[in-house]
Design a protein around this nucleic acid. Structure first.
Length: 601
RNA sequence: GCCCUGUUAGCUCAAUGGGAGAGCGUCCGCCUGUCGAGCGGAAGGCCGCCGGUUCGAUCCCGGCACGGGGCGCCA
């Protein structure tokens, strides 16, 4: 080692020692006769003092990489810096060696200044010299270690699966890789290791996990990147409760060690239907209350056409209260209409309750009967001075989701959310099916998800109501993990395919290799996948998963650092087989099969 | 694919239908106790790109590109 100590570890106990440090010039304060340099390495910062004997220190510039020899000294009285862990001491330099110089910086390497995203990404290696971004990567490394420890203690095997695999057109869009040796054929990058982990259960591995890179070619967001990471887990001979217990052990260890927060277990569970009814979301943010109120029965018989139409169609009318919302200006109330329209709704009906009299006012109020208005406050739990927002639709879920989004927006605007709070829940008993565009049914989770015990023998009778052994874990309104019990019985699988309208031929074409494997004594198995980037984002307090990824891409899937993606040369194009014509239109088994993916992340 | 929003000095951001600004950074000088040091000076700009309106456009209009946020998509 070319240094004897790490800068950030020096304390008064080191006073009198001669140390050799190596790191970067974080900041300098040149007084002519004396120069102070903040020397930064991975451990932190310490102040180095150069006196006139080391006049070459005048030439130091920000981010020069240097080696300094000096003596640790207590700082003169009154000159301590309580903001630095090393602030009680300083290094009086006796030797200075410039290991490498730094050109003028394209962005400030400064904890106090934040540059724009694209500049930060282009010079991410400089961005990561800052304490905040560096800390995020350190935390992620710790999270990986914690998860591995929990799983290793429970006899899980860490197994890698292919990243060049088979296309899965029924899920998200795949990223495709042309195959030089067989022009016209393509690999896909996996959307998740879902199929492989199920095959590993057939193999008798029994307990599998992987910190797996996954790829999905869809729109990107603050919490979605084209490549992302899942902590992927699968177990044999277990029930839903076993997976939930394991999930709680992992989440408990992560939050305990990295957030100093004791997760209360068991983590509350609510059913998917309860989550939708009470919070208008399948990933409810439980940091605040403000539950939705269904008014379908209360308002039955109303003459207000918007509500009556939804009720008569067998739909839903509901409301959510905005505490103090009556104080909003007309402009703010109109703003809600734009907000709702941006979400594809027609608008957001509301009444405001007069702060003095409690009288209901607003454009909708004159459409409601006196009885309906008089009982409204009690029906929705509103007080004078509140606003009540309504949603009505023939489609129950649509109306609930609008109210759920309004609830979140109210939570933000009315500052009902404690930013330091952690609120976990499991959302269980998700529906197996939802209506498909063609009038049939499509799998909500994926077609290998088992119906729960209640519906095992009769899900065909009411596919719209059948429930699955599928579960999501939610933290502060973010889905951080999800999984299911898988179907391992051929007869059940066949019935599910029948309900989905998948013929045996389709099934063989799409999932043939998995179904074949399931002919050879597949064990009952279940699993879960955690959205690792999101979890690390929450644990670091970041507002984008980009902060916990070493070299992330922009929203357009562009990497400002490397410039990827790039055009290819004519020779690369010729060799890659990109332009090869398919030999025959989609022979059986080569058309690519739909592969289910775990929903987390 | 759609909506909102931004793009002005290396970075962060002002301003204006007619002469382009600040802070930080950079370069030069001064300075022995600072800690986002201070003081003085200097350099540094296709005002994102293309087109239109106008006597004249960084500013107004249209298109495009790129960034950010959201919807759809992912599920």
């Amino acid at each position: 080692m070319i240094r004897t100590h790490e800068a950030g570890t020096l304390r008064p106990a080191h006073v009198g020692k001669t140390v050799i440090l190596a790191g970067w010039v974080a900041r300098r304060r040149d007084h002519g006769g004396v120069i102070f340099v903040d020397l930064r390495d991975a451990s932190g910062i310490v102040q180095v003092v150069f006196r006139e004997e080391l006049a070459e220190a005048h030439g130091l510039r920000n981010e020069y990489c240097v080696k300094v020899t000096g003596e640790v000294r207590e700082r003169p009285a009154g000159n301590e810096n309580p903001e630095l862990p090393t602030g009680a001491i300083e290094i009086v330099a006796t030797e200075l060696a410039v290991l490498s110089e730094a050109a003028p910086l394209p962005l400030p390497v400064d904890d106090h200044v934040d540059a724009g995203d694209d500049v930060r990404l282009k010079y991410r290696y400089l961005d990561l010299r800052r304490s905040g971004p560096a800390k995020a990567l350190r935390l992620r490394s710790s999270a990986n270690q914690i998860a591995r420890k929990v799983l290793h203690e429970r006899a899980f095997l860490e197994i890698e699966t292919p990243t060049l695999t088979r296309s899965t057109p029924e899920g998200a869009r795949d990223f495709l890789v042309p195959v030089r040796l067989q022009p016209g054929t393509w690999y896909a990058l996996p959307q998740s290791p879902q199929l492989f982990k199920q095959l590993l259960m057939v193999s008798g591995m029994e307990r599998y996990y992987q910190i797996a890179r996954c790829y999905r070619d869809e729109g990107f967001r603050a919490d979605r990147q084209p490549e992302f990471t899942q902590l992927d887990i699968e177990m044999s001979f277990v029930t839903q409760d076993d997976i939930i217990d394991l999930g709680e052990a992992i989440v408990g260890a992560l939050w305990g060690e990295l957030a100093g927060y004791t997760v209360q277990t068991p983590i509350p569970r609510l059913t998917w239907h309860d989550a939708m009814a009470r919070y208008g979301s399948d990933k409810p943010d439980l940091r605040f209350g403000l539950e939705l109120n269904e008014l379908t029965e209360y308002l039955r018989g109303t003459e207000f056409r918007v509500f009556a139409g939804a009720i008569d169609a067998g739909g839903y009318v509901g409301a959510v209260v905005m505490p103090g919302g009556a104080a909003q200006t007309r402009k703010e109330l109109d703003g809600w209409q734009d907000w709702a329209k941006a979400r594809g709704a027609r608008g957001l009906a509301y009444v405001v309750l007069d702060a003095e009299t409690g009288e209901a006012r607003g454009p909708v109020a004159k459409n409601l009967s006196a009885d309906h208005l008089n009982g409204l406050a009690d029906a929705v739990g509103a007080k004078p001075g509140d606003a009540v927002f309504f949603a009505a639709s023939a489609n129950r879920r649509e109306a609930q989701e609008l109210l759920g989004a309004a609830r979140l927006e109210i939570g933000k605007r009315a500052q009902l959310i404690d930013p330091d709070a952690w609120a976990f829940c499991w959302v269980v008993d998700a529906p197996m099916f939802e209506p498909a565009e063609d009038g049939g049914w499509t799998a909500v989770h994926h077609p290998f998800t088992s119906p729960n015990e209640e519906w095992m023998d009769r899900f065909e009778e009411a596919p719209d109501r059948a429930l699955a052994y599928a579960y999501d874990i939610v933290c502060n309104g973010n889905e951080i993990g999800g999984g299911s019990v898988r179907i391992h019985r051929g007869d059940v699988q066949k019935r599910v395919f029948d309900t989905l309208g998948i013929t045996p031929e389709d099934a063989a074409d799409k999932f043939g290799f998995l179904l074949e494997a399931f002919q050879y004594g597949p064990p009952p198995h279940a699993g879960i996948a955690f959205g690792w980037d999101r979890i690390c984002m929450l644990l670091t307090g970041a507002d984008s998963i980009r902060e916990v990824i070493a070299f992330p891409k922009t929203g357009g899937g562009f990497d400002p650092l490397t410039g990827a993606p790039t055009p290819i040369t004519a020779q690369q194009r010729a060799e890659a087989g990109v332009d090869a014509k398919p030999k025959a239109p989609a022979a059986a088994g080569t058309a690519g099969g739909a592969a289910p993916v775990e929903r987390a992340g």
